[in-house]
């Protein structure tokens, strides 16, 4: 990590800090793939690569929520729940009212979760972690009640989502058709749009941002709403990929999405990081998970590893910035 201390190069420095983590991360990814190839020769193929991409995409999309909220020093632990609810609503409502209205209702409920989060965080100033955990708890309760009263007409997974989730074109997963524009949009929004710069400004120094006229509460409210909307869209994609509607569909992705953003170089205290690193972080986690599965490490071991990774990366970051 090199840092210059002349304020005139601040904007360049910002770019540098966003771009720099990519190189070592891609290096790490290549090393992991090489280790995987040594452990299990013959695993590497076009099919494997496309499968890894397919698995990494929902994770990378949920990690976008974490990246954006973490840029302001927050976190969104309700993304798994929002994704699950949107998937479950789509699958159960589609046979009743048709696919487009079902998807509309599903995304609307995801947005509702985001609005509640935003209200608590922006206006009541609850810590994002506690607030999103709380809404996740309430939303899960609502899902259970809904599941009990839903008319048992079976489950329908829209064909378009199946195509998107499981289909392949020229050996590449179709979900890339959703993901590539999504990633470009997010990266553009973070680097170039006013909203993106506000996220960095609030994360770097909230008081300074407030004093320079930023309406922090509006940014927070918008941010958490967008975050839940992204989670809802991810839920739709994930539904097409997993092909079953369960009450805990995307919940196991909650924690890896935080880990992906942290590994990708986004600081959990805000103000530093970017989506490019997060995408590589999600790929690293996916390769790592398939490696751990290959080595038959159980679920518990994986969670311990994720926790330790988050801790180590954050501690390393603190060490680095303190020295400067």
């Amino acid at each position: 990590m090199t840092m210059t201390d002349t304020p005139t190069t601040m904007s360049r420095l910002g770019r540098l800090m966003v771009d720099r983590p990519l190189l070592p991360l891609i290096g790490l990814l290549i090393v992991l793939v090489a280790v995987l190839a040594i452990l299990n020769p013959g695993v590497l193929s076009m099919f494997w690569a496309s499968n890894t991409l397919k698995i990494a995409i929902p994770l990378a999309m949920l990690a976008a929520c974490q990246t954006m909220t973490m840029l302001t020093g927050g976190i969104d632990l309700s993304v798994g729940t929002a994704a699950t609810i949107s998937a479950y609503l789509t699958a159960t409502l589609a046979p009743l009212i048709g696919v487009p209205p079902a998807i509309a209702i599903a995304l609307a409920s995801a947005v509702l979760i985001g609005l509640v989060n935003g209200f608590g965080i922006a206006i009541c100033r609850v810590h994002p972690l506690i607030m999103t955990l709380g809404t996740a708890l309430i939303a899960t309760g609502c899902l259970l009640v809904y599941q009990r009263y839903v008319i048992a007409t079976g489950v329908l997974i829209p064909d378009a989502l199946l195509w998107l989730g499981t289909g392949r074109t020229f050996g590449l997963p179709n979900s890339l058709a959703l993901f590539i524009p999504f990633a470009i949009l997010i990266i553009w929004a973070q680097r170039r749009s006013g909203f993106g710069r506000l996220l960095y400004a609030i994360g770097a120094n909230e008081a300074a941002a407030r004093l320079s006229g930023v309406r922090v509460w509006q940014v927070h409210l918008t941010l958490y709403t967008i975050s839940s909307l992204i989670a809802g869209i991810t839920g739709l994609l994930y539904l097409g990929q997993i092909k079953t509607a369960s009450l805990s569909l995307a919940l196991p992705l909650d924690l890896p999405s935080v880990a992906a953003a942290v590994i990708g170089g986004t600081s959990i205290f805000g103000g530093r990081g970017g989506y490019g690193g997060t995408i590589v972080g999600a790929l690293i986690l996916t390769v790592l998970t398939s490696m751990l599965t290959l080595m038959q490490i159980p679920e518990g071991g994986r969670r311990i590893l994720f926790g330790l990774i988050i801790l180590a990366v954050t501690a390393l970051f603190i060490r680095l910035t303190e020295r400067n």
């Binding site: 924690l255 205290f269 590893l305 954050t314």
Partner: peptide, 15 residues
């Protein structure tokens, strides 16, 4: 942050 990371670690240990 520490206790969030340890939340995952202790969960893993319990499992």
């Amino acid at each position: 942050v520490v206790t969030l990371a340890m939340l995952f670690v202790w969960q893993g240990v319990a499992l």
